[in-house]
Amino acid sequence: MSKKFTKDHEWISLEGDLARIGITDYAQEQLGDVVFVELPEAGRQVEQGNDAAVVESVKAASEVYAPVSGEIVEPNVKLEDEPALVNQDPAEGGWFFTMKVSNPDELNDLMDEAAYADYVKELG
């Protein structure tokens, strides 16, 4: 399945009932050099829009929100030693966590790739 996007610049890609979540290239560029990532533990329940992870650059800390509700399956622990992966490969290797989606209908609230591209363009 192709990716969906939130207004807060997370991406989500669904593989069966498992979803992989990361932040967009636009987001990593706005953040600058990522120096620390705090990931959710496996088994944690998150609601759509809740804080799920933290990403910190030299100058600021930002929240990463759960794009949909569900249970965290696997945090990308590679980011703990190599936070710069978020900058280098935000769309693939820099993913944050996978989760089991509890309500697939929530995905309908999100933007597709074209809508997100327009959204980012408007932000300037």
């Binding site: 807060d8 610049h9 997370e10 932040i23 100058k59 600021a60 800390a61 930002s62 929100y65």
Partner: peptide, 9 residues
């Protein structure tokens, strides 16, 4: 993803 803290407000 949104900024929660920033030194440059």
């Amino acid at each position: 993803m949104t900024n929660s803290t920033s030194d440059f407000d």
